[in-house]
Design a protein around this nucleic acid. Structure first.
Lengths: 214, 214
DNA sequence: TTAGTTCTAGTCAATTTGACTATAACTACT
DNA sequence: AGTAGTTATAGTCAAATTGACTAGAACTAA
């Protein structure tokens, strides 16, 4: 389950997109589904998630975390399947390089049709978790490049939380977080005063997969 | 992974306890471990967790949530094992009924020796999650009975967060949460003014397992 | 009756939040 | 060159929240 920001077609503002793969066999042949695959004996769960991500979309995520293990009895009509789902955030530069083909395509996260299996429910849950994490932790930065303006951060929040935020107040809050570092670079090229660039110096989450690896 | 409150032996204040089972075969024969067992083809993950809980300790939890799927390569020295761990909170009345035997015993969560497999790490993570959830959500009530005093709620917070809280300020905050309902009952029997009893009217979490079941 | 205890309501200053104003610094147009 | 348009950025002010504290209420035990 991969999230990336892409500019919306109309407004140009960033919105959440996710890549899906088309099912080429039954069940649900022809429908779109989350990328995934079996776990082998010689890789950890996180490694398997990375590998699947790499194989289907060519992406290397800047953030990868376990989402949930789905194990209901009737997730697949043909057999019992337990899916340990990971979710990833990728930076725009990465996302632009992603492979796209007949059977791999990006979709806006808020405009999905009916997907295979219980994948709509999985995505709903991932969106809920993303919004939740965003409200507390510092996760939005993994959707941006190394350098970013505070307005870009605000746009990420606005896209994910789907509401407008006061620019001045948002600034004040972000600047109060110690993980945000001011650079002395400015972003040129806009039709207005050039905004200062910042960078994020924090580490990912505190999950069992990540907490030990410093 | 089961949490319950029990009065500390010395101070009498509530502290966190967890039941462990003794390994009766290799690997780690003789060491204590978290209760658990294999997943069958005919039960969901949550059902399997409930069943294992019931079989080993006789407990029926008031709260059951998925913790994490652990899938490192070397968790067991003999074979590759993926454990989808659930954590439960049980009320004191339930916990008092729990089976205890030669091979099932309760331990204080902050005074554990070396356990089998990676179970120390799992418990550390569960404790971290419990503290986290407690700081935000309304989860402490699942460790208490149906009726409770605000001082009891505070004691739960103090036990889990391991720091003292101002009684008056804590009251104010708890009373501000809409899920807490005042009753017109009072708890008699103390050597002091009898405190009013409250009840919790909220629902569990918003996990995929729980969110649909109303 | 009094001392001891916790319960409970309340005050007050410090901090944080939300709404808003004003100036700074750039580009684009005339 | 000058001016309008735009976003960046700092700052103000009232409202809401939090933390430290005070004081009376209501019970038990002696």
């Amino acid at each position: 389950m991969i999230f990336a920001l892409r500019p919306s077609e109309r407004s140009g503002r960033p919105t959440l997109w996710i890549p899906l793969v088309r099912r080429i066999r039954e069940p649900f042949k022809g429908l779109w589904a989350l990328p995934g695959g079996p776990l082998t004996h010689s890789e950890s769960l996180q490694d398997a998630a990375s590998r699947n991500l790499q194989e289907t979309t060519g992406l290397a995520p800047s953030y990868l975390e376990q989402l949930y293990a789905f194990g209901g009895l009737h997730r697949s009509p043909t057999q019992r399947v337990v899916s340990i789902v990971y979710w990833a955030l990728v930076q725009p530069t990465e996302a632009a390089l992603a492979d796209e083909s007949e059977n791999v395509r990006w979709f806006r996260a808020d405009r999905l049709g009916e997907l295979a299996f219980d994948h709509n429910a999985i995505i709903d849950y991932a969106l809920w978790r993303l919004r939740n994490k965003m409200a507390y932790g510092s996760i939005a930065y993994h959707l941006l490049g190394e350098y970013f303006t505070l307005a870009q951060v605000r746009e990420v929040y606005e896209a994910v939380l789907d509401r407008e935020l006061d620019p001045a107040n948002f600034r004040r809050q972000v600047k109060a977080t110690p993980e945000i570092e001011e650079t002395d670079q400015y972003l040129q090229g806009g039709k207005h005063r050039p905004p200062r660039l910042y960078r994020f110096t924090g580490r990912p989450g505190l999950d069992p997969d990540n907490r030990s690896t410093p």
